[in-house]
């Protein structure tokens, strides 16, 4: 028998987030970019409770010390590394970056991201799909960043992606969840986990996103660019948990008229 405290803490018997056969207790995935310094990054990631963290693949800067590599600061035994293909504008480039990431020797997972427009950083869905098919065929576990477009999401699932990751709003914008209806539709129709990736600005955005019933949220800038990243990381952790719990609890129906909470009877004459 569970106590009410245990129920609240465990999120109404909520199970782990299972992606590609791997269980994660946290439904929050965080990026490692744009932090003021590496110490703050590590402290913020710990405060977020995230187990999976994203990293980018870039040239080693030959003029500087090798200390700039993130693995000098982030223990790959403590966090599950999800390499991304950020910055790629073609399927060919994304496949190249994914192969390089896998050769680093940690895992065969990739956050596939193919950008189609420099100004909005919106994804090139067709190129993403093309790259996804190649990478799945090569044995990658692909988590695909995509638009809030149901048909694109269905195609990516069909292609064998282990997770489909529609955006809340453009990368780094902090605009929050602009299209809850489409996000709910994608979640309703897909079988693989749906992780909302990009656009969350603050904890209420994370909460509102999770209230749509999605499986998780991925964010970077909202934490890294906060005045106090460690505190924001904790706020995001709580926001994600609150949103998840509220979703599982089942919200009351919306009404356009007021309904009193106190008894209407028993009033004094």
């Amino acid at each position: 028998m569970t106590t009410s405290t245990e129920r609240a803490g465990s999120g109404l018997d909520d199970g782990p987030l299972t992606i590609g056969g791997r269980d994660f207790e946290s439904r929050l995935i965080v990026g490692t970019g744009k932090y003021p310094d590496n110490e703050t990054m590590v402290e913020a990631i710990r405060a977020s409770g995230s187990e999976m963290v994203t990293v980018a693949v870039r040239r080693v800067d030959l003029d500087r010390s090798s200390e700039e590599g993130i693995l000098h600061h982030l223990d790959p035994d403590e966090f599950f590394l999800l390499a991304n293909t950020a910055g790629c504008y073609t399927a060919e480039d994304a496949v190249r970056y994914a192969r390089l990431a896998r050769a680093a020797g940690f895992n065969e997972w990739i956050k596939l991201e193919v950008i189609g427009d420099e100004k909005t950083l919106l994804p090139d869905v067709q190129a993403t799909l093309e790259a996804a098919r190649i990478l799945v065929d090569e044995g990658f576990k692909v988590m695909a960043y995509t638009n809030d477009d149901l048909v694109a999401a269905l195609r990516l699932e069909d292609a064998g992606c282990v997770s489909v990751m529609p955006l809340a709003s453009p990368i780094g914008s902090g605009l929050g969840l602009v299209n809850p209806y489409y996000i709910r539709e994608i979640k309703d129709r897909l079988e693989v986990p749906v992780i909302v990736d990009a656009g969350v600005g603050t904890a209420s955005d994370a909460c509102a996103t999770m209230e749509q019933g999605v499986d998780g949220v991925l964010m970077n800038t909202a934490i890294a660019a906060a005045d106090e990243p460690v505190s924001m990381a904790r706020a995001m952790r709580l926001g994600v948990q609150a949103g998840r719990l509220a979703y599982l609890a089942g919200r009351m129906p919306r009404r356009e008229i007021a309904v009193p909470s106190s008894p209407v009877g028993g009033m004094l004459d």
Binding site: T32, T54, R58, L218
Partner: peptide
């Protein structure tokens, strides 16, 4: 890509183009 286990055996050739990459912070 050159497998890491082969770094000691693979000899570089004239006009080779090499990319040396690693993980950096990213979202």
């Amino acid at each position: 890509i050159i497998p890491r286990d082969d770094y000691g055996e693979v000899t570089l050739r004239d006009d080779d183009t090499l990319e040396l990459v690693h993980f950096v912070g990213g979202g």
